[in-house]
Nucleic acid binder design. Structure first.
Length: 835
DNA sequence: GCAAGGTC
């Protein structure tokens, strides 16, 4: 029996299909697909099935000095145990093993990992390697006709990368995290790829912060020929003889403006007409696909996720590729034929097939692992895919169309007119031949009309305008620009670049879109620049690539390269030795800066975004416990502090990030005031001082207040909302007066409602609500009679089968607590005692 | 719990 091992299930199935001529059977082993036919079995891995890590004695961050990791052993352990188990099982029954992982460096390493697993159960079985550039009949057949050996040097190059990345990443990440005391989920990470990417964002932010805007002026005027007006702009020659439009001093700008405004005609002195060929775009690699999807509104993460779904469903080719040259076996005409007759995609394909010859465009990068992203010819019907998936699928199809379409042709017309030696110019452009734009409507084809004029012709001059402007700071990188720049810098891979950006978001280093670095990110990059410059520089990757090439070609050993890297890191740690506290202080301060909204109106310290021990967010004062001022935040989403400040309170506005439900909350103090938090009545019976519960952990000092919600309805609610959801209803109409008389039982003031001419006594809001509940359901629950049990709690209890006091006294407190969210067993015991 | 790289 022969065992064939591929990098992924999809490839295993397609190879089985080709080699078996479609006659394979499939079965499942430990949840892994195995394809079988005529004495052969084919199984797909899931990329790496083993990973590198330190031995377990290094796993406690506090017990191990980060520097010790540098010389620690690095072990390989199974990360996909079911796949490893399946591989071992199949290997035992194999008389020959063929490794058919992807044709690139990482594929060679994955193949070597499979080799080691096989060798572990069978020392002698022959193991060979096949390589093919695309999974097509011809390529696969000839690869299996001429099998090769595994390239152990190439695999070792990949292993060197794994080891160096782990040691540098883990040692420095632990060092920074320990120095700042960030040991939980919020550790402070650095790495060979993420940190240079972060530095890119931070450097741009530094430029923006340091930017000093400069004033300049531009002058525009309308020119008219035969009743048709077109816009022109004043220009001059700068000291280098180049055309310049920006006038840097006001007096000159005024003078030009006054002169032009006083004239009513201009003379054409130059007419320049030229045609420009606009070549069609290159085939999609991952980066360019992400960029194009970004232009129609998809984040990098979303674009890749949709592309992976379309790939798995068989509609497009593998979406992770650097290749920008279609392989020889792709026949564009055949592929176009698949779309002929399709309701929305057919017409373009038909028009392209009319060409005499079809020659696809190609980019500079030609790799051996996967083709550029293109449609497979399988077309989903609209019901098979979501709107977003269809939109992305259409983008991929149309990109393929564009790469086999004709160039477009533009005609540019530049007219220069003269007024008292001042020059005006107008640039017109017209799309003469639409070419690929007809089949790829994602690029702008806006024309700018400038009429035909002749030299010496007089044109009417009107509507002269002087515009004062300022130079703008550079713009932040967008997600797709960052991914493109990473590719240019040579960091990350087609499969990881978009994940790296997600990692920076998750780590609290960047926020918003386009991403803006946090203060923490600025501090991490600062610290790295000062002590471990290598980890934030693209040089580290460049050197590593160079070293990996040396290993792959046999000029260097894995240990030469990793030993040298360890020595460099030792040096860094030697320099870091005395700086732990200094670095930690800076990081801690920056972490706090990221949570700061502005001054507390009660004490002048800082208001910070905080998290309650129940996990919800609120705003609290840095002066706590001296200052107990708090402001609520909405219960949905994760708060993001915006750059915008509230004019009235000087506090930053807050946005709540919650996927599609993301919304801007605004200034939390304004919101609290708008929410009409009225007079405080007394302690909250659920979480306030002396609350009825014996569960002292719930005494969080909540108070009841009269509140008006945004929809206009009113209630008595806890000031700790949303941490505490205790609430009592109030009538919608009428003014509410808080009297001096108190309810003895609940220690709350009696309320009077003034509506119309006839004020009525609502009384104690708890008594009022209990009476209301009693009236509402005569046979209903008597649970509200208990102090500290609000309407919500009654509902929750009822859901858990506790309908009245009798149910409650019979029940097991721990069982109820497990069933009912937000109700502790201690609270239930206190109710049982009362009942 | 640390990285980056595969893949889902």
């Amino acid at each position: 029996m022969e065992l064939i091992i591929t990098e992924k299930d999809n490839a295993a199935r397609r190879i089985a299909d080709i080699l078996s001529g479609g006659t394979y059977d499939s079965s499942r082993e430990n949840g892994v697909n195995v394809y079988e036919w005529g004495g052969k079995r084919c199984v797909g891995l899931s990329g790496h099935v083993v990973g590198v890590d330190f031995p377990s004695e290094y796993s406690d961050w506090r017990d191990v000095e980060p520097v010790e990791l540098i010389d620690a052993d690095v072990e390989k352990t199974a990360t996909k145990e079911n796949i490893v188990a399946t591989l071992r099982l199949l290997a035992r029954r194999a008389e020959r093993v063929t490794i058919a992982t992807d044709y690139d460096r990482e594929g060679e390493l994955i193949g070597k990992e499979a080799y080691d697993i096989v060798r572990n159960v069978d020392e002698d079985v022959p193991i060979r390697r096949v390589r093919f550039s695309s999974i097509t009949e011809n390529e696969v057949q000839s690869a299996f006709d001429e099998p090769d050996e595994l390239d152990f040097d190439l695999a070792a190059a990949g292993e060197a990368r794994q080891i160096i990345d782990l040691i540098w990443g883990a040692a420095l990440t632990r060092y920074l995290s320990l120095s700042a005391g960030q040991l939980g989920n919020d550790f402070i990470s650095v790495g060979r790829v993420q940190s240079p990417t972060l530095k890119l964002i931070v450097d741009r932010e530094r430029e923006i912060e340091a930017f000093d805007p400069e004033d300049y002026w531009e002058i525009f005027a309308d020119l008219t020929k035969d009743d048709t007006a077109f816009e022109s702009q004043y220009f001059y020659r700068d000291e280098d003889g180049n055309e310049a439009e920006r006038v840097w001093d006001e007096a000159t700008a005024d003078e030009v403006y006054e002169t032009l405004a006083a004239r009513d005609a201009a003379t054409v002195v130059d007419v320049n007409r030229r045609t420009r060929t606009d070549t069609p775009p290159e085939p999609f690699n991952t980066t360019q696909f992400i960029r194009a999807a970004g232009a129609i509104g998809y984040s990098a993460k979303r674009a890749m996720s949709i592309a992976e779904d379309l790939y798995t469903a068989g509609y497009i080719t593998y979406p992770r590729t650097d290749n920008t040259v279609y392989p020889d076996d792709l026949d564009p005409e055949e592929l176009l034929d698949e779309f002929v007759g399709h309701s929305s995609l057919g017409e373009s394909a038909e028009s392209l097939l009319e060409a005499d010859e079809i020659v696809p465009t190609e980019g500079d990068e030609e790799t051996t692992d996967h083709p550029p992203i293109h449609p497979t010819g399988e077309i989903p019907s609209r019901g098979d895919v979501s709107d977003d998936e269809w939109e992305v699928f259409e983008l991929v199809v149309r990109r393929f169309y564009a790469t086999v379409a004709d160039a477009a042709v533009w005609e540019h017309l530049k007219v220069v007119a003269d007024v008292d030696d001042y020059r005006l110019k107008a640039n017109g452009k017209r799309l003469v031949e639409a070419g690929y734009h007809d089949v790829y409507p994602y690029f702008s084809t806006t024309e700018n009309y400038v009429p035909d004029v002749d030299e010496g012709e007089e044109l009417a001059l009107s509507d002269v305008a002087l515009e004062d402007k300022q130079t703008q700071p550079p713009r932040r990188y967008g997600q797709s620009r960052l991914i493109e720049t990473m590719e240019e810098m040579g960091i990350g891979t087609k499969s990881t670049r978009h994940n790296t950006l997600e990692k920076l978001y998750d780590r609290g280093y960047i926020e918003g879109d386009p991403p803006r670095p946090t203060k923490l990110a600025m501090a991490v990059v600062d610290a790295a620049e000062n002590y471990a410059d290598r980890i934030v520089s693209e040089e580290m990757t460049a050197q590593l690539e160079h070293d990996m090439d040396a290993i792959a070609s046999g000029e260097a050993d894995l240990s030469d390269v990793t030993d040298e890297s360890r020595e460099m890191l030792e040096e860094i740690f030697a320099n870091l030795a005395d700086s732990r506290d200094e670095i930690g202080d800076h990081l801690r301060k920056s972490l706090k800066d990221d949570k700061r909204l502005g001054p507390c109106p009660e004490c002048g310290e800082d208001l910070l975004v905080r998290r309650s021990r129940h996990g919800s967010y609120f705003i609290g004062c840095d002066g706590y416990p001296d200052c107990e001022n708090t402001l609520p935040l909405p219960s949905t989403g994760k708060p993001l502090i915006l750059e915008e400040e509230c004019d009235e309170h000087g506090l930053n506005e807050v946005k709540m990030l919650a996927g599609r439900q993301t919304f801007v909350h605004g200034c939390p103090l304004c919101k609290a005031e708008d929410a009409g938090e009225g007079p405080v009545l007394g302690a909250c019976p659920e979480c306030g001082e002396d609350s009825a519960t014996t569960d002292s952990s719930r005494d969080d000092g909540g108070e009841l207040a009269v509140k008006t919600l945004e929809n206009g309805s009113r209630l008595v609610g806890c000031t700790r909302y949303p941490d505490c959801e205790y609430s009592l209803p109030l009538p919608r109409r009428g003014e509410i007066e808080v009297t001096d008389e108190y309810c003895d039982e609940h220690e709350l003031p009696e309320l009077v409602v003034h509506s119309g001419d006839d004020p009525w006594e609502l009384g104690c809001p708890i008594c009022n609500y209990q009476e209301f509940q009693a009236r509402e359901s005569e046979s209903g629950s008597d649970l509200e009679a208990l102090d500290g049990v609000g309407a919500k709690t009654v509902e929750k209890l009822a859901d858990a089968g506790i309908e009245d006091l009798e149910d409650l006294t019979d029940a097991d407190p721990d069982a109820i607590a497990a069933d009912v969210e937000g109700v502790s067993a201690d609270r239930i015991r206190s109710w049982q005692a009362k009942a």
